[in-house]
Design a protein around this nucleic acid. Structure first.
Lengths: 349, 349
DNA sequence: TTGAAAGCGCTAACAC
DNA sequence: GTGTTAGCGCTTTCAA
């Protein structure tokens, strides 16, 4: 049981306190803590006893200042809420924990887009972490270049860079599978697209793939069947309603995110259009809730947790000096549940 | 545009580099950065120019070691994923950002429950943060006592402590409202409870309130109408199925979390029991998806984001030396959507 | 195997 | 208004 007050009258105990109590030098204490095998067993035991008796915890600022690694990884995300980031985050955490590393997270929402303050974000700050994973959605490249210049281990997620290792999804495979499934397996002829904001790169890309694959299947990718909105359920609902109201015939819908798809489920219900009887629906992400909508949502799985795992593994490799793969592309695949018209109507966890 | 290589051949520029370039002392540089108004405008401008030219970013480890505040808050959660923590987190973030503070997050999953390592978690480490918010679900009190002893600003969430400021929900109001609504407004006579693990304090408490309020309404709280499982959708589904299979009559269900309620929605569908026609359903949490289930879920709202906001505000107060309120109890209220049998069937965002 | 001592980069007295 | 200087707590050569 740690002693309440120790050698130094104020504040937490320091190496000096431990050293005094154990009758050794501060250097020896430090060695016991970092290179235990370089210390005689007897002294080691004595020092450890002193550490425990005082409840000594190393001051990590000092430790860092003196050049020791921090033993923690940083993760910078555009925001911290929402299923996608949440999943990504827990993937990163899983791997860093397994490696015995701490994890520091924060979002760039706090960042003034004008000023180059990324380096002062704790998870990107060398004083706090040994390396950083960044998902730089809307981050100016100047921010990133700055990081590169500092030459610290960094891995980018969902964004490529000429000098940094990158991990992203390849939406092509999954979207192709989705469209083919709709057209070839279920005979859809008019596949609409419920897209995101017109300035969201990921949405644009998925929409483009939707169009490409449609023509590849020999079906017209009618521009009037595309709706744009935000990534939210509410917008998904409104787009679905608008689509129905437009009067253009359609028999299937590809939504660029599960959130939009879930909103669409409501919009269609409201409009008296049944899924999947009247219209087939496929989402994107395979978010944790996708299996629990009614009907369960068929969706293109982009396993964010896996993305997080790989990114973390890459970062750890970079930190340890092993060369990280320059660019990792994770496959996406179609998860067939009920909203696309496939039989099973129960959830498949 | 910052210069690539600066005074010191290796590593990032330091105060010394800036001082040299601006032709002042390091103290002046430090002042410009921390107490700008204490410096002559002319020198200030010169220093700022030098800072920008070199792309200087203060080393926060050194800064901290020298006794300056870190300007960041720490948040420790049991885990980082899931809607509840996700919401809480973004509430904390919102307030800390507004206060110009950074936020450091990590989970206790990494922690060995045996050893007292909480203080070495970055968000609880004085070297990293000025104060910490902890949601200590399953944390031994010894961990917490340790923190108290260090005397650093700390606020606890969903757990009381004799010495620390605390912020929690009061489930009583919301559960009461829910049960009364079911019994008094909709005439339910047999209200079942789908509960969580038998060792989860929050679940136990909600179940107890369910029972209390039922008898208060003059209705029997039949023990055979209680099911226990985990907090997941899958378990919710199974509990619903088991409930139906049990053969005991019931006309309403109170689920201790939205996840369980969502699972129950599937279980009932599978069993051919319609919600709300055959059975009324109320959940707990008002998670972001609750408005988007079908039917939209009536639920006891425990606004985690608000909880986060209040906790952050309390912590900031404590850090600034203003006394934080010892114990804040946030009210929970019933959000009426469609699953309880109330009219509106569309989502209300 | 252990100790002495020199910083790491910054802030904050304290003088000027 | 500005400079000098002494640490903050730790790691790490370098000697012993």
């Amino acid at each position: 049981m740690p002693v309440l007050q120790s050698g130094s009258p104020a504040g937490s105990p320091t190496v000096a306190d431990v050293a005094r109590l154990a009758g050794v030098s501060t250097a020896t204490v430090s060695r016991v803590l970092n290179l235990p095998h370089r210390v005689a067993p007897a002294t080691r035991t004595r020092v450890i006893a002193a550490v425990q008796r005082l409840g000594y915890v190393p001051n990590s600022a000092a430790r860092r200042l003196a050049g020791a690694p921090t033993g923690t990884l940083g993760l910078v995300l555009p925001e911290l809420s929402g299923p996608y980031f949440s999943e990504l985050l827990s993937g990163v955490e899983q791997v860093s924990r397994a490696a015995g590393l701490h994890l520091l997270v924060s979002s760039t929402e706090a960042l003034d887009p004008e000023s180059d303050l990324l380096p002062s974000l704790p998870p990107a700050d060398p004083a706090f972490v040994d390396g950083t994973i960044i998902l730089p959605h809307s981050l100016a490249s100047s921010h990133i270049d700055r990081l590169v210049r500092q030459g610290r281990p960094t891995v980018l997620v969902e964004r490529t860079h000429p000098l940094l290792p990158t991990v992203s999804f390849d939406p092509a495979l999954g979207v192709r599978e989705a469209i083919r499934h709709l057209v070839l397996d279920h005979g859809a002829r008019h596949v609409a697209c419920l897209a995101g904001p017109t300035d969201a790169e990921a949405s644009i890309r998925r929409e483009r793939l939707w169009a490409q694959e449609l023509v590849a299947c020999g079906v017209e990718a009618a521009g009037r069947l595309v709706m744009h909105g935000h990534w939210s359920e509410e917008e998904g609902r409104e787009m679905a309603l608008a689509l129905v109201a437009s009067g253009h015939p359609f028999d299937a819908v590809f939504a660029v995110s599960d959130e939009v798809a879930i909103g669409a489920l409501h919009g269609f219900e409201q409009a008296g259009v049944r899924v999947p009887e009247d219209v087939l629906l496929i989402g994107f992400d395979d978010s944790p809730t996708a299996a629990w909508t009614r009907p369960p949502l068929t969706t293109v799985a982009a396993p964010a947790r896996e993305l997080g795992r790989v990114a973390a593994a890459q970062l750890i490799a970079a930190i340890e000096g092993r060369a990280a793969t320059r660019e990792v592309l994770l496959p996406t695949t179609l998860v067939r549940r009920a909203s696309c018209g496939c039989g099973a109507s129960s959830a498949d966890s």
